[in-house]
Simulated assay, not measured.
Amino acid sequence: MNNSITVYGIKNCDTVKKALKFLAGHSISYQFIDYRERPISEKQYEDFKDAVGIEELVNRRSTTYRSLSEKEKQSIDFELISKYPTLIKRPVLIKNDKVVVGFNEKKYLNFLL
């Protein structure tokens, strides 16, 4: 069984920084992928969406989301996510095809340990 952890996010995001600090503090190794530098694929987007649902995946508190038209807010898809990667709530952790979005210590402990 593969126990590797992949963390998707944006390196200057405070929530991502907290998550990476948490992982390091618990001696959990991970691979970090900044999706501004390496955008997610359509398959990854679909996998994330299938795992957690679009409601949990989309960062509705972001400035980017608030700047979208009502029509765009109702039809967030891969094309829109590709154009505005900050629409994805951060970070996204992947372990053994399981996905957790956002940062919550209790949720991380259950997911990772």
Results as ranks from 00 to 15, higher is better:
N2R: 10
N3W: 03
N3V: 01
S4L: 11
S4E: 09
I5H: 06
I5A: 02
V7S: 02
V7E: 00
Y8M: 04
I10F: 01
K11W: 03
K11H: 08
K11T: 14
K11C: 01
N12E: 09
N12G: 05
C13E: 06
C13Y: 05
D14N: 15
V16P: 01
K17E: 00
A19Q: 04
L20I: 04
L20W: 04
K21V: 01
F22I: 00
F22H: 06
L23H: 11
A24Y: 08
A24M: 12
G25H: 03
G25I: 02
H26D: 05
S27K: 15
S27V: 10
Y30G: 09
Y30S: 04
Y30T: 01
Q31M: 06
Q31K: 13
D34R: 05
Y35G: 03
R36H: 15
R36D: 04
E37H: 07
E37N: 10
R38S: 08
P39G: 10
E42L: 05
Q44C: 03
Y45C: 06
Y45E: 00
Y45K: 02
E46M: 14
E46Y: 13
E46I: 15
E46R: 15
D47P: 02
A51K: 14
A51T: 10
V52A: 09
V52H: 10
V52I: 15
L57C: 07
V58P: 04
N59L: 08
R60Y: 12
R61M: 07
S62R: 14
T63R: 15
T63F: 13
T63Q: 12
T64M: 07
Y65M: 07
Y65V: 12
Y65E: 03
R66E: 06
L68Q: 12
S69F: 13
K71R: 12
E72M: 07
Q74L: 14
S75W: 05
S75N: 15
S75Y: 09
I76G: 11
I76P: 07
F78V: 10
F78P: 02
E79C: 05
I81P: 03
S82T: 10
K83I: 05
Y84R: 11
Y84D: 02
P85R: 11
T86D: 03
I88P: 02
I88A: 06
I88L: 13
K89P: 05
P91T: 04
P91L: 04
P91M: 08
V92L: 01
L93V: 08
L93E: 04
L93F: 14
I94G: 02
K98D: 08
V99D: 02
V100L: 12
G102R: 00
G102T: 09
G102Y: 07
E105W: 00
K106W: 07
Y108N: 01
Y108F: 15
N110G: 15
F111R: 00
L112W: 09
L113K: 15
L113S: 13
